[in-house]
Structure formats: structure tokens, C-alpha cells
């Protein structure tokens, strides 16, 4: 083999950089593994009959999905930040807030600590500036 080896990305550096972004949890394999059942539960709400069962009794429905106590608690509280901490992914979780009749904007806004109104006004005013929230270490 005389051919020059291709330049490879260092996977450890690649993954470590994600933790440097403020207020952001990138959906890595580690999170995907942790949240497998939470996300699969959310997927089940794409079927009308499952939505009905879930609406009738949230807690009873969750018993069938192999969730951890922390995951169950987060779902019952509709705490989307906690669900993401527990491995949830927002596109999967969108089945949950859609089943609740909630918009993407309301759900996303609920994770920011702002009121729905404040969040909507921030978006109309041009959204959240990237200034200062690109990097924890770099502070830019």
C-alpha cells in the first residue's frame, strides 16, 4: 500500500465537541440508545387507536413501553427538556405534543424557560441570536 491514507475524522474529538454547545443536546448514538423505548413509545402515537388509549390513561399506557421511572415522570409532566435528557429526540417527541394538539413552536418554546408569548415574540423579532451561545469554552 503506497497510496496515501485518507484523512479520517477522529470520532472522539467529533463527539466531544457536541458537549461544547450551550443549551443543546445532539442526538448521538449514546442518547439514541438511552432513549430507545421513549422514542418508540412516542412513535406508537402515530396510530389513532393508540392515541385514544394513551389519552384515556397516560400512566397505564406507559406501562407497556419499558420506560425508566425518570422517562415516565418526564412524559407525564410533559417536561420536554427532561425527556431529551432521558434520550428523547424532538422529532419522535413531536408525536406526543401533536397528540396533545400542541404546535412545534409551543413545544420548542417550553424548553427555553420563556413563556409561549415571549418565545413567539422573540421569533418575530428575528429569533435567538447566535452571539455568545455557539461555544461554552470559547464564550462566543
Amino acid at each position: 500500500m503506497t497510496e496515501k491514507k485518507k484523512e479520517r475524522i477522529n470520532i472522539h474529538e467529533y463527539l466531544a465537541e457536541f458537549d461544547d454547545i450551550p443549551g443543546t443536546r445532539v442526538f448521538t448514538a449514546q442518547r439514541a440508545r438511552k432513549g430507545y423505548w421513549l422514542n418508540q413509545f412516542a412513535m406508537s402515537l402515530m396510530k389513532e387507536e393508540n392515541r385514544q388509549k394513551f389519552k384515556e390513561d397516560n400512566a397505564a399506557y406507559l406501562e407497556d413501553w419499558n420506560l425508566t421511572d425518570a422517562q415516565k415522570k418526564a412524559v407525564l409532566a410533559r417536561d420536554y427538556n427532561a425527556m431529551i435528557d432521558e434520550g428523547g429526540n424532538v422529532y419522535f417527541l413531536s408525536k406526543l405534543f401533536s397528540a396533545d394538539g400542541q404546535s412545534f413552536q409551543k413545544a420548542a418554546g417550553s424548553m427555553t424557560g420563556m413563556t409561549e408569548q415571549e418565545y413567539a415574540e422573540m421569533m418575530i423579532a428575528g429569533g435567538r441570536s447566535p452571539e455568545g451561545v455557539r461555544s461554552k469554552k470559547g464564550g462566543y
Binding site: 443543546t24 431529551i84 412545534f104 424548553m111 428575528g126 435567538r128 447566535p130 451561545v133
Partner: peptide
């Protein structure tokens, strides 16, 4: 284009980018 749908940084928009 630019958007973030999750976490405390949700709502990020970067016009210059």
C-alpha cells in the same frame, strides 16, 4: 435554514450564516 427545536437554545436564527 437555521433553526433549533430543542433545549434552552431553541429559537436560534443566524441570518448571516
Amino acid at each position: 435554514m437555521s433553526h433549533q427545536l430543542q433545549g434552552p437554545r431553541a429559537g436560534l436564527i443566524n441570518k448571516e450564516f
